[in-house]
Simulated scan of single mutants.
Amino acid sequence: MPWLMVAATVIAGIVTIRPMGFSGLGLVVALLFLVNCAVLAARLLPEDLVPERSVVVWLALGVVAAAALLGTSRTGSAYLFAFFLAGHIGYRLDTRPALALAAFCSLLCGGVLYLRAGPDNHALTVVVGLATGIAVLPGMAARSRAQATQAAISAAEASERAARAEARTAVLTERSRIARDVHDVLAHSLAGINMQLELADALIDTGDLVKVREATGKAHSLVRESLKQAQWTVHALREDSLPLQESLIAMLESSGHRNALTVTGAVRELPAQVTQNLLRIAQEALTNAARYAPGGEVGVQLRFAEGSTTLTIRNRPATKPVATGPGSGMGLIGMRERVALLGGTITTGPVTEGPDRGGWQVEAVIPG
């Protein structure tokens, strides 16, 4: 740890460096020793606290102080300050300024020791002085490891943020799906039941009990249909897979349309999500047909192609009075959302030609 190395260097300096006192050369050595301690202690400061240019100037002054301590002290471990300072240079600065400052440290310390040593010790002292800058290499390696660790931590944090955002998006998507299912089950069913009960209430005053029973019978039928729809919703929320063809037949028969399903192409099993959304689209279209075109015949076609599945619901014009107000528009929005989630397309609009002219058509094409 950095503070342990600094502490060890300071203790070694106090114990071994001589002369050190309060006057003459001892005072100079003591002051230089304190300056070197201050330079090494600066490595404990956070990197973002001091500007880069100030750090370079401070470390350059530290190199000068370390070389001066080497030149003034006679014995001891004064050279440790130069070694640890060079290591900190490699850790603190980028590669180019670190190498330049380390070279300056080596040349300055080598020159000082060359001038101090006698003729017989020039080679050894020069080697020791020049070697002080080599400590920059371990410092640079430690810097690389620290940067790699920080990059890994940043990547992990970014991944965690992305995972949280994805989870939130999934929750919102699921909420939208549940909202569509609740709308399909409650809004349509309750609207149909309310319409039949209002009709029965109006017929009571006429005394036509046959029509009253017919209206209440339809209300009961809608209640049973609502229970089936609730079952479908529970299946959808549990992500259970329903058989598409059989479910469409049951849905049509419960709506009073027998033999209304036509299947073309090679029948295959579809993913649960595709089946659920196609059933919801069919349910929405049939509910709208019963509301806006009562009495009109309904035909459903399910086409299996090589790269897509197409569901078409077409109803003829109403043959009975339409006793309902404008809808909320949420049904069409829900259908578009369902198809968009599957990457498909949906078209809705009036039928302008053929035997169903004047009616309405919904066609959903799901790829895959």
Rank of each mutant, 00 (worst) to 15 (best):
M1S: 15
M1T: 15
M1R: 15
P2H: 15
T9N: 12
T9D: 04
I11F: 12
A12Y: 01
G13P: 04
G13I: 07
T16M: 02
R18T: 02
G21D: 02
L25R: 13
V29G: 13
A30H: 12
V35I: 15
A38C: 14
A38Y: 09
L40K: 05
R43P: 01
L45C: 08
L49Q: 13
L49I: 09
R53S: 12
L59T: 01
V64N: 07
A65E: 11
T75H: 11
S77K: 09
S77N: 06
A78M: 12
A78P: 08
F81A: 11
F81M: 10
F81W: 13
A86N: 13
I89R: 04
A98F: 11
A100H: 00
G111C: 04
Y114S: 06
Y114A: 07
A117W: 10
G118K: 10
G118F: 07
N121P: 06
H122F: 07
G129F: 08
P138W: 06
G139I: 10
A141F: 08
A142W: 02
A142I: 03
A152C: 07
S154Y: 07
S154Q: 02
A155L: 12
E160S: 09
R161F: 01
R164A: 00
A165D: 15
E166H: 10
E166T: 05
R168L: 10
V171Q: 12
V171G: 01
L172W: 00
T173F: 05
E174Q: 15
A179W: 09
D181A: 12
D184A: 10
Q196E: 15
L197A: 12
G207P: 04
D208S: 07
L209S: 00
A215N: 09
S221W: 02
L227Y: 09
Q229P: 01
A230R: 10
Q231N: 11
Q231R: 09
W232I: 00
V234S: 13
E239C: 04
S241W: 06
S241R: 06
L242K: 02
E246H: 14
A250C: 03
E253R: 13
E253M: 02
G265S: 01
V267H: 01
P271L: 10
A282R: 10
A285I: 02
L286E: 00
T287A: 12
T287Y: 04
N288D: 12
E297M: 13
V298L: 12
V300C: 10
Q301E: 14
A305K: 03
A305G: 15
P317Q: 04
P317K: 03
P317M: 07
K320P: 05
G325Y: 08
R336S: 12
E337K: 03
V339K: 08
G343Q: 08
G344V: 05
T347C: 05
T348L: 15
G349E: 09
T352L: 10
E353G: 01
G354T: 06
D356K: 04
W360T: 03
V362F: 11
